[in-house]
Computed example of a mutant assay.
Amino acid sequence: MENKQSYALVFGVSVFDICGFTDRHYRCNDSNPGKVKTSFGGVCRNIAESMARVGVNTKFISILGDDETGTRMLEHSNVMNYDMSNSLIIKGGNTPTYMAVLNEQGEMVSAVVDMKIIDEFTTEFIDSKSEIIKGSEYMILDADRPDLVEYIIKTFNGHTKFILDPVSASKAEHVKHLINNFHTIKPNRYEAEIMCGFEIKNEDDLRRAGKHFIDLGIENVFITLDEDGIYYNNGKLEGKIKANNVKVVNVTGAGDSFVAGIAHGYTNQVNLVDTVKFAIAMSTITISTEETIHPEMCYNLVEEYVENIDWTEIEYK
């Protein structure tokens, strides 16, 4: 009998990011000297690439146009070693694109978002990927399409373990009635407040929120607290872990790499505390560069960071 290799599955949107940075005072209705950077983004795509970079066997179901950008994204996934072959390719469609202009202070002054294509994701398409979903050890979702999240959970509950990155407080609102179906959730403080129904102002509130989620049947809860670190709770172990003296260049992508670190821990049967440290180390590497994914992100670099970070650890009794 064939021994199939286990894999983690990511489902969500890929985005082509175009960012223009002006050199000096931004002038509206004019051409501004500056620099333009392009990159492949999207929360789920970032998670998938980061997982692959640290050795997780990763499949990623996304949606792309049959344009040049979509072709380049598929080629990039092959280079980075995550499998996008089950993605939906829309003939004549535009791959999701985000174009922003930032002024000399780094503040966004204008943006155009082309995401119409994601409406082409349908329950029929989900059904056509049922074997891939059922075969996954873990399935990572964000809250971009709450209707599809609900359909996936109701259709495949019991076949795989679901991990949720809510992405934003407004999107968390639309999936909070589903969270008892998740194995793992990774909200930030504000998303957690939406999903538990009360404000998290202090440590007591934080622990109360953690207990609320565990009591719902969620196995692992990770609440990101920005510079205050990560709160974790699995019903037996509860605490906070923080990396000290962290260099911050760009926080974009920190949450995505954290989820990838969680997936690495799960697929390698790493204990909870070491999983959190590995995930924090991935985030620490990510925010040390302008890029959304550090160009040198890999398992060995993360392990080096884990060893060298000055950790603050609190374990609640």
Score class of each variant (00 low, 15 high):
Gly158Cys: 08
Val276Leu: 11
Val13Met: 14
Val276Ala: 14
Lys116Ile: 07
Gly229Gln: 04
Val101Arg: 03
Thr160Arg: 07
Arg53Thr: 02
Val54Asp: 13
Ile285Asn: 05
Ser288Lys: 07
Ile63Asp: 01
Asp165Asn: 06
Thr284Met: 06
Val109Asp: 07
Ser283Asn: 12
Asn81Gly: 07
Glu219Trp: 02
Arg208Asn: 14
Ile214Asn: 10
Asn244His: 13
Lys171Val: 02
Glu313Thr: 12
Ile89Leu: 13
Glu49Asp: 08
His25Tyr: 14
Val306Ile: 14
Asn181Ser: 12
Glu307His: 10
Glu199Gly: 09
Asp30Val: 07
Val251Arg: 08
Ala192His: 00
Lys134Val: 05
Glu131Ala: 05
Lys176Cys: 09
Asp119Ile: 06
Leu74Trp: 07
Asp127His: 13
Glu150Arg: 15
Thr275Val: 11
Lys4Ser: 15
Phe60Ala: 03
Phe156Ala: 01
Ala263Gln: 09
Glu219Met: 06
Thr224Val: 09
Ala279Ile: 09
His25Arg: 13
Ile280Gln: 09
Ile63Met: 03
Ile293Glu: 08
Ala52Ser: 15
Leu64Gln: 02
Asn244Met: 11
Ser77Tyr: 06
Tyr305His: 09
Thr71Trp: 10
Met139Ile: 00
Gly253Asn: 08
Glu227Pro: 06
Glu219Lys: 14
Gly261His: 05
Asp127Trp: 07
Asp310Leu: 09
Val276Arg: 01
Pro166Ser: 00
Val43Glu: 09
Arg72Ile: 13
Ser170Thr: 11
Ser136Val: 00
Phe182Leu: 00
Ser130Phe: 02
Tyr299Thr: 12
Asp119His: 09
Lys242Asp: 05
Tyr151Cys: 02
Ser168Phe: 04
Arg27Pro: 01
Thr289Gln: 13
Met73Lys: 00
Val259Met: 11
Ile223Cys: 01
Lys129Asp: 03
Gly41Val: 03
Ala100Arg: 01
Tyr98Val: 04
Gly229Trp: 05
Glu238Thr: 02
Gly197Gln: 03
Arg24Asp: 15
Asn86Asp: 14
Ile18Asp: 04
Arg207Gly: 00
Thr224Gln: 08
Leu272Thr: 13
Asn250Phe: 10
Leu148Cys: 00
Tyr26Met: 11
Ser170Cys: 05
Tyr151Thr: 00
Ser85Thr: 15
Ala254Thr: 04
Gly70Lys: 02
Thr289Leu: 09
Thr275Ala: 11
Asn233Ile: 06
Gly20Asn: 13
Thr292Asn: 13
Thr160Glu: 10
Thr71Asp: 14
Met84Ile: 07
Arg53Tyr: 04
Gln105Met: 13
Thr38Ile: 12
Glu2Arg: 14
Ile140Ala: 06
Leu9Pro: 04
Gly42Asp: 03
Glu199Ala: 13
Ile223Glu: 03
Ile280Met: 11
Ile63Trp: 01
Phe40Asn: 05
Thr267Cys: 11
Tyr266Arg: 12
Val101Pro: 00
Ser288Val: 07
Asn271Met: 08
Met297Trp: 08
Ile152Met: 05
Thr123Ala: 08
Asp228Phe: 02
Glu307Met: 12
Phe16Ile: 08
Leu164Arg: 00
Met282Gln: 07
Ala143His: 00
Tyr82Ser: 01
Lys247Asp: 09
Gly261Tyr: 04
Asn271Phe: 06
Met51Ser: 14
Ala111Val: 02
Glu173Val: 09
Pro295Leu: 13
Asp67Phe: 12
Tyr232Ser: 08
